[in-house]
Each structure stands twice: as C-alpha cells, then as structure tokens.
C-alpha cells in the first residue's frame, strides 16, 4: 500500500507544475512504472483516485505505462533483464519493492557476479510528461 505515497507524490508534482491554474487545464499526465519496484498498478490507481478526490481533474488524464527493468554491469558491461533473473526470494522482492536500490544487495551480474551494476531502465515511478490543454507538453530534464 505504500503505492499511495508514490501516487501522492505524482499528484503533488502535477499540482506544482500547474501552479495557481485550475487542474482542469491538464490534458495528459504520462506516468511510467518501473518493473523493478513492482508497483501494484491497481493500488497505485486507487491511490491516484484518493489523491484526486475533490480536485478538478479525473483519472482519465493519467496514462500509465509499465517499463521493463534492465541492468548493465559496470564491471564487464553485460546487460540483463529482471525477467529470467533467477532466485530472488520473497523478502528480497519486498525490500526491492520498498527501496529499489536494495537490488544491489540481492542481485549480481549473471556473467561475472559483480554487484556493481546500473539499473539502466525500469527502476520506479517517473512522470514522463505533463501536457496542458492548449500547450506543448513539458518534459523536464
């Protein structure tokens, strides 16, 4: 259920971007959920719904895509996916769910065994873009 804290973060960020204007100005908010954090999409959406209660914008504005997790070894440059990675136990999955960086304690490069790797894609919750009616979308960073 800590999905709600993240949904809250998304809505707060959107409100910051919209500023003093009415939330009804939102056309589309594009969200990416990284596979590594294993966010329960339904709980996340329920969280969004909660956070939007009483605000002038509905769920339909939010477009949510999942992003596959990808890793790259900093030592031997091998790349791998989460899907097919063997043997992460339930507690370890839960730790990664709370704190995706825990992966560095529980995963190793499948080729050389190094724990020094980069989560190249699909880490956690990101806002890809916020699009306002009558304006170009903003992609920060």
């Amino acid at each position: 259920m800590h999905e709600w804290a993240l949904a809250d973060a998304v809505v707060s960020t959107v409100e910051e971007k919209v500023g003093k204007r009415n939330l009804s100005i939102l056309k589309e908010v594009h969200i990416r959920l990284g596979e590594l954090q294993n966010i329960d999409r339904e709980i996340f959406v329920t969280g969004l719904k909660m956070m939007l209660r009483g605000k002038q914008c509905g769920l339909e504005v939010f477009k949510i895509d999942m992003e596959e997790a990808g890793f790259k070894c900093n030592y031997c440059e091998t790349e791998w996916k989460l899907n097919g990675y063997p043997g992460i136990g339930e507690d370890e999955r839960e730790a990664i769910h709370f704190l995706p960086e825990s992966a560095h304690a529980y995963m190793q490069c499948p080729k050389c065994g190094s724990s020094d790797f980069t989560v190249a894609a699909g880490r956690g919750v990101l806002i890809e873009s916020i699009e306002l009616n009558g304006q170009e979308p903003t992609y920060n960073d």
Binding site: A5, F98, L99, E101, S102, H104, Y106, S115, D116
Partner: peptide, 24 residues
C-alpha cells in the same frame, strides 16, 4: 531493507535511495 548485506551504491543510486526513503 538489506539487513547486514553489503549495499554497494554509486552516487546516483545513493541519491535515489535517500530520496525514496524520504518520499515514502
């Protein structure tokens, strides 16, 4: 989250981990 296991993090991971804890 990680018990007594080593948690080797580079700069960007450190920031991510701290920010995650503070945000949730």
């Amino acid at each position: 989250f990680t018990g007594e296991s080593p948690l080797p993090l580079r700069g960007k991971d450190t920031t991510n981990a701290i920010l995650e804890l503070l945000a949730v």
